[in-house]
Amino acid sequence: MQDNLDLFALMEVRSQLSTPDVTSYDTDHRLIEIWLHGLSGDTQRGYKRCVSEFLCWVKKPLDSVTLADLQNWQDTFFGYAPHTQRLKMAAVRSLLSFGHKIGMLPTNVSMGLRQPKIKDTLNERILSEEEVAAMISAQKNPRNQAILLLLYTGGLRVNELCALRWKDLSARKPGGQITIFGKGGKTRIVLLPEPVWKKLCKLKNNAVGSDPVFVSREKDSLGRTLDQSQVNRIVAAAALAAGIDKKVSPHWLRHAHATHSLNRGAPLHLVQNTLGHSSVATTSRYLHARPDDSSALYLNVQTKTTFDTTSQAIDARQNKQPKQPRTQKVQATPSNLKCPNCKSKKLQKNGFQVLADGFKHQRFRCQNCDYVFTPLLSIPN
């Protein structure tokens, strides 16, 4: 109802454009307000910034903007990252399309605009399982360690983590579950492993349901919610302490969740639901970022190193020397390893599985329930 009233008010303003007390700036400003209504705070801030830049550059009202104006503005993006270029243009295109759809703009001049093609660099922002484990182990503060664990195991966005309240968590044996109100106003449920759930429960103390899960030292208008910038610093410090020479952000742990779970055999649709992706195509990007196979591996290519190795092997056979066993790096068997299905310790080795780190990890079969598994990422006590 409120949206309809706003729309009628806008149409009335447009009908009075010929009067001297109504300016094009007022009309554009009101249009932008209605366009942003209902979007998340982060999206509103980003879109406002992009549209303001365009309006300051074009110096004309939106109903006078042409396709040539958009193309000329796009030509000024030299030096910006491809992702930033697409974001700037996507914001303006969305506004112009919305204005035309509700009748505020005569045409949608952005329809003829071509978006620049960009290189997919997702693979550059994916951590290995060893790197994630090192980050978690390096963080000794209980709250900060729980933040890293939840970003990774829950696949949360940083704003979703900061918005968590204790009422969003509930026990679900053997672990627990969290209810997330995420991007696009969608609610999803994420199950947590038992070790992660126990880590979170230790942080509650005397907190009530409306209190934030992760508490800041400084109080704000919402209570004591941890700021997103502080989470960024916590993740960056953990990466530095783990010896990772990359600008790691909280979203990297979300990328790691998707990649590692898919590599361990999680169904694509399950990863999509856990991460809250609108389309399975978004989730499938992780399959393309770290493929398990490539036709390049089937080619018969010899370098000097492989040639020398082959020659040495032939000479060894001719000299009838005993063949040396090939060594391979495997995952050590923890002494307290249990079957995730029935908790039995009666396990037998059952081959290997290649994970995201490129190494072969030992798989096990439970002699009690016949469940086959690869040990999960170890979580420090």
Results as ranks from 00 to 15, higher is better:
N141V: 14
V51N: 01
K101M: 10
K320M: 11
N4K: 01
P380E: 07
S210M: 07
D75F: 10
L96V: 12
L200I: 13
K48R: 14
K199Q: 14
R172Q: 15
I136E: 03
S52A: 12
K186V: 13
N263H: 15
A356N: 15
N300S: 14
N205G: 11
S216F: 01
G38F: 00
F181P: 00
V132I: 10
R30C: 10
S137R: 11
R365Q: 15
K323I: 14
V213D: 11
H29Q: 11
H100C: 15
L95E: 05
Q321Y: 07
G112H: 01
R254S: 07
F8C: 03
K59V: 07
V158S: 07
V354H: 09
S279Q: 05
S18H: 11
D220H: 03
L96T: 12
H269N: 09
I126G: 03
T121E: 15
L113W: 08
N4G: 00
E130W: 01
K343L: 13
A90S: 15
P334T: 07
R165K: 09
Q312F: 06
S170F: 09
I126F: 03
A236K: 12
E194A: 15
H251N: 12
H255Y: 05
R285Y: 07
G154M: 08
L70W: 00
L96C: 12
Q272H: 03
D293C: 03
D315V: 08
Q177I: 10
T84W: 00
T19Y: 02
D21M: 11
E53F: 02
M11V: 07
S335I: 14
A258T: 09
K219I: 06
P195E: 02
T66D: 08
K360M: 14
V271K: 00
P291M: 09
S128G: 11
M11K: 07
G79S: 05
N205Y: 04
D211K: 00
G176K: 01
N4Q: 04
L377H: 00
H257Y: 12
P325D: 12
K140G: 08
L105G: 01
Y47I: 10
K246H: 09
L262F: 01
E160T: 05
R93V: 13
K349F: 03
R188K: 02
L7I: 06
S15T: 04
W197R: 00
K183A: 09
Q44A: 02
H83S: 15
G41Q: 12
H255W: 06
S378N: 10
G358E: 06
L191E: 09
A256D: 08
T107Q: 11
L164E: 03
F214D: 07
K59Q: 10
N381R: 09
L70P: 04
L10V: 02
L87Q: 15
D6G: 03
I234L: 06
L376Q: 13
W252C: 06
P322C: 07
L7G: 00
L70N: 01
L5R: 09
A242P: 05
R224E: 11
L287K: 02
L222Q: 13
L17P: 00
D370E: 13
T76P: 02
G175M: 07
Q353S: 11
S344P: 03
G184H: 03
